[in-house]
Design a protein around this nucleic acid. Sequence first.
DNA 1: CTTGACCCTGACATGATGTCAAGGTTGATG
DNA 2: CATCAACCTTGACATCATGTCAGGGTCAAG
Lengths: 129, 129
Amino acid sequence: MNIGQASKTTGVSERMIRHYERVGLMPPPDRRDNGYRDYSPQSIERLRFIANARGLGFSLEEITTLLGLWDNRERTSSEVKAVALAHADDLGRKAAALEAMRRALLELAEGCSGDSRPDCPILDGIAVS
Amino acid sequence: MNIGQASKTTGVSERMIRHYERVGLMPPPDRRDNGYRDYSPQSIERLRFIANARGLGFSLEEITTLLGLWDNRERTSSEVKAVALAHADDLGRKAAALEAMRRALLELAEGCSGDSRPDCPILDGIAVS
DNA sequence: CTTGACCCTGACATGATGTCAAGGTTGATG
DNA sequence: CATCAACCTTGACATCATGTCAGGGTCAAG
């Protein structure tokens, strides 16, 4: 399967497929006589794994770890779970941080008349806080 | 006030103070005879504004807009409020996306025994989903 | 005069991704 | 056969906010 087809069936851009290869997430695929990359069903499966992991917010570095575990029959599920829970924790902290910003901002905005006058507690709040 | 002192009193790194100047968020400060930057109280106030806005998650581009409004006595509070609410919306969407990832991940992790065996619904879930 | 604590500029790195340029390949159509 | 569109190749530059490092000037205290 050519890279264009691989991209279409996995939703991963050609750019990123090549990138994953460069950084070692994807093994170098077979090449046709003309030099074109040729992807096996296994490669497509791996690509999908990466795409799904990205969709869960894992970094490429974390995905390297996950793929290592995926490939390793000697893995323990506790290793996998530890990675997953650590990432879930990370997501939780980041979401909470964004929510805190949002609440602070809405609190400032609450006092703002939002009309044609220049007085604005939002600007005041940012200036002094 | 030298840049080191400005950095200490605002919590903004010297690197970023210079960066804000380069990208036009901060006006070029006065220079001493030796070429050292010399910050006025007004500059320090502006720096604090930027730092606080960053703390609320505004991008430097959004802060450019906010500073423009701050500087402009002809502004209307509705303009400011629109920027703030748009950003709050953005924050809300991003937080929700992270939370969704977290829930999906925790759901997968729930089925994982987390012991010494290799079977793991987390990896399975990432592989197929 | 030396030493340490400042300051200056410029450059490279991060992470994940887009985009563009310049070129080779292939298949179809005139 | 010539050509054109649709592929593929590699390499490079851009994004955004920030860190860090190199190589050099300045200044005050000992």
